[in-house]
């Protein structure tokens, strides 16, 4: 690298980027296989369902991707746990009054009321908003999705009405999430300027100045060093690892048991209620003699 090269500022580790692309894959797949179910009374979703091989296959794909999200969430719980509890760099993601102020400043700046752009740190108001929306959305979608996946288990714990309510919430939240990605994420990450940090892991000085001026100033002032002494990391990890392991194990056992403990439904065509003998010749108690041709069994 030549000395004239523009300095780069690290935004995401390889692990972060890996998480991100897994999320992109699962979210897109879930959105497609989910929204076509939501609108499956229309011809176009039906055409897409046909491409997937029918509604049963579509549901299998959707639920499989749901499991991918659960695994990715378990992984994120680990990385987030490490950042919030061990290195304590997670504090940059915690929303506060400063973010409300930044949002207002952005609006005022855009309206020409303020001359200065919002002065934001490592994560902007827009980024925090998206991060916490995904946390909230994933929790809601996972909960309602699992409820619908095994309504038998759900209704052994919760009232029956929670199933159609879960369905309503799952569909509503899906539309909200997809629209938010299209409006918010696509604008701030792709349209405003194309942010390549999820590919390269870093951004340039110009972007830093524009979006993370406070962080840049802190770096320049030498106040941005979040690093924690190795022995502190070790001490905190001694707490985190067992707690994390316990949460993941309990969560996994719960999900597996929840989905498999009871038989959800029979796999065959349901039997019609109250079956009787199909062929049962009528024997009149007493009646006129049989004239002409009569069924063999009705003839004495």
């Amino acid at each position: 690298m030549s000395e004239a090269a523009e300095p780069r500022y690290r935004r995401f580790t390889l692990s972060d980027r890996f998480e991100h692309w897994i999320q992109v894959f699962a979210f897109t797949g879930l959105a497609i296989t989910g929204l076509i179910q939501l609108g499956s009374d229309k011809w176009m979703p039906q055409a897409v369902i046909t491409v997937f091989g029918g509604i049963n296959t579509t549901r299998v794909i959707h639920r499989s991707l749901g499991i991918v999200v659960l695994i990715a969430t378990a992984y994120h719980l680990g990385t987030a746990g490490y950042r919030f509890l061990v290195t304590r760099t997670g504090k940059h993601m915690i929303p506060g009054l400063g973010d409300a102020r930044a949002a207002w400043h952005a609006v005022a700046y855009n309206l020409g009321i303020r001359d200065e752009p919002p002065y934001e740190g490592r994560f902007t108001f827009a980024e925090k908003m998206e991060y916490w929306s995904i946390i909230w959305g994933t929790m809601l979608m996972a909960a309602t999705g699992l409820m619908m996946w095994n309504p038998v288990a759900t209704t052994s714990i919760l009232p029956g009405e929670f199933i159609p309510a879960a369905k309503a919430a799952h569909g509503g939240e899906a539309i909200l999430a997809v629209l938010a990605i299209i409006v918010w994420h696509a604008y701030f990450v792709h349209l405003r300027h194309f942010n390549r940090s999820m590919l390269t892991g870093d951004i340039g000085e110009e972007e830093m100045e524009e979006e993370h001026a406070a962080e840049l100033d802190a770096i320049m002032a030498g106040e941005a060093d979040d690093s924690v002494p190795a022995d502190v990391v070790r001490r905190r990890m001694r707490w985190l690892v067992p707690i994390y392991a316990a949460i993941v194990i309990v969560g996994t056992v719960f999900v597996v048991l929840f989905l498999t403990y009871q038989e959800i439904t029979i796999k065959t065509v349901p039997p019609p209620a109250a079956q009787v003998e199909i062929y049962a010749p009528y024997v009149p108690a007493a009646g006129p003699p049989v004239v002409g041709v009569a069924p063999a069994s009705a003839t004495p």
Partner: peptide, 16 residues
Amino acid sequence: QQCHPEAQADFPAAWM
């Protein structure tokens, strides 16, 4: 229960 043999008392209310 014809199709959901392990359904319990609150299950039918899941159907609107």
